[in-house]
Design a protein around this nucleic acid. Structure first.
Lengths: 332, 332
DNA sequence: GACTAGCACTCGATGATACCGAGTGCCACC
DNA sequence: GGTGGCACTCGGTATCATCGAGTGCTAGTC
């Protein structure tokens, strides 16, 4: 598709533009070490690259900037890049030192990732529905309000407030908890919907309330999402309006989750501009990777920045962090 | 300090500037209903207001914009404003419909508040340390990792991962839980540090681990903070740099909590510009209010916007929401 | 045929100049 | 004390010339 030299030129343009955010001229490219031809030759090739849609000119007498297609080609020809030494060390020591609740760790992971890349970072936590239940409890709070608490094997805690239909006697809630524990322990939480009926009528009423609270109304926030580094992201854009619309996306957790899932489902690990499928992200790029616990993909991490993103660095950071995060979560 | 007319003029300038973000000229003020003098007179008074530090001129031939002192005077003379009918209805129906976990509700409260005001909203949750413990559990996760879970009376759940010193036998964790429950139930979680030693040595080891996990290392994130509407806030500023620095603040939960607490401690419910004590918020204003559960102030809500904020609206919204939130949390 | 030197050309950015008008300060007057 | 009137200020906008980075093209070289 692209001969060797055109590819080099495209690479040089993208790399330069990523650094300077200024249109890149033929002279500058010709001076690049990797390209040993005159600026005139570069000009010819750049004109061809523009005709093929890899580059564009903001205006006639300016240099070129990459198009979405240009970034895509650049990303596709990247050999899997390595993280520089100090950053790798930072990741390693972060996960070595991590001894915390899972939420805290995921939240801190966004900080790490954002710090490594200088863009916004997203971590989607493991779907709680999949994890096995370790322990179940039903605690009365006040009046007819009770709290159903399930501890999952991965250290997460799911809770639901439950409104009871009738006043409870002393032993009801523990009995309901026992019934739930009997059927749920060792199962994923989703198994709650297939729970066998209890013999005791009062217990059954409580159980049904719990089932209702656990299955229903949970669609609006299906996973735990952590976002960080929005401020860093803001620094990458010149127009407030762009920042605003990107922030709007980042604040809608459900949208973020869907976005990451969509991108991964399409088999991509980078989505550039309109590839994200979201209009407000037209000037953005997204680098994602799943992380695996015991060989199974349980969650996703990602980095959101401008389309003129430092792709090698972002890809490396996301790869290393997702790998380490999965590793850390696997060992328990 | 300010005679009646000067106060009216100041009020007119602030109100106009809040709406338009444009310097306000004497002509416009003179045409305001509340001011029945000629523009020349207004000019004289405005010059006086400027000399007194209430107004300033961006440049000689422009109108005036309020200074921090001007906003302060404006806010101080506000009679406590009421929320408009539809907004009040929105708040009411929100809290009527709220039947959720406390975290979910607080998070949604930020959305409500942000939606009402069109600025960023912050809610600081009740300090968990103060709430009474209802139930205690210790659940083994894997290897020597266990999870300490405490359900509090307000429906919050505190959890800490605990690393055990030795392998556990079947009954150890339940026994440790029982010991903890015995001493903690009905007490605030902070009482964990004064727990009596257990007779059993193995139990005592677990208990000590729990105490260590509960008391230590928790200073860095003392409360649960919810922030929303950063995107709306971004729309209020013209310079990306301003947006970026404000975002940086909002992303540091500890800073936000401290900020709100400081402002309240100084007896203010509005902090304008440098009154916040934070350089990056020089162009911002913060409206805060505590909310009370059973007559005790347990948390804080706030709105962060530009110093040219719609103060009457923001004050009204914060007042109503804090009152309703406290009410809702009190009834359990 | 592939590359390059050279050159005319384009067009945004920059700066000088003029003009407009909103808004001011001040003064004379009521 | 309040007001009408007026000269003045100065940012914003428009116009125009200049500059130069960068281009496309052509003729020439290896």
């Amino acid at each position: 598709m692209l001969d060797e030299r055109k590819a080099s030129i495209l690479r040089a343009v993208v790399e330069e533009y990523i650094q300077t955010a200024q249109p890149v001229g033929s002279g500058l490219v010709a001076r690049t070490a990797a390209v040993n031809v005159s600026s005139a030759t570069v000009r010819n090739d750049m004109a061809a690259l523009e005709a093929d849609g890899y580059l564009q000119q903001p205006h006639t007498s300016a240099g070129r900037i990459p198009t979405e297609k240009g970034y895509r080609a650049f990303v596709d020809q990247l050999s899997h890049p390595a993280l520089d030494r100090s950053a790798a060390q930072r990741v390693r020591s972060f996960f070595d030192a991590a001894h915390m609740e899972i939420e805290q760790m995921l939240a801190d992971t966004t900080r790490l990732l954002s710090g490594l890349t200088d863009y916004a970072a997203v971590v989607v936590g493991p779907a709680h529905e999949a994890a096995r239940v370790r322990s179940v409890q039903v605690v009365g709070l006040s009046g007819r309000i009770a709290l159903f608490v399930a501890v999952l094997a991965n250290g997460a805690v799911e809770k639901r407030t439950v409104e009871l239909q009738a006043d409870t006697d002393e032993s009801l809630l523990p009995r309901a908890a026992a019934h739930l524990a009997e059927h749920l322990t060792g199962q994923p939480l989703a198994a709650v919907s297939e729970i066998a009926a209890a013999h005791d009528e009062a217990v059954e009423a409580v159980v049904r309330s719990v089932v209702a609270a656990t299955t229903g109304g949970h669609d609006d926030e299906p996973d735990h999402v952590f976002v960080n580094g929005a401020a860093r992201m803001a620094g990458s854009f010149a127009a407030v309006e762009t920042v605003r619309s990107v922030l709007t996306i980042l604040e809608q957790q459900l949208v973020v989750v869907t976005l990451l899932r969509d991108v991964l489902d399409r088999g991509l690990n980078v989505a550039i501009g309109t590839e994200t499928g979201m209009q407000p992200l037209a000037e953005c790029a997204l680098v994602v990777a799943p992380y695996e616990v015991d060989g199974e993909k349980v969650g996703t991490i990602g980095v959101l920045g401008p389309s003129r993103m430092n792709y090698p660095q972002a890809l490396a950071a996301v790869a290393v962090v997702s790998q380490q995060l999965g590793h850390r979560l696997s060992e328990g």
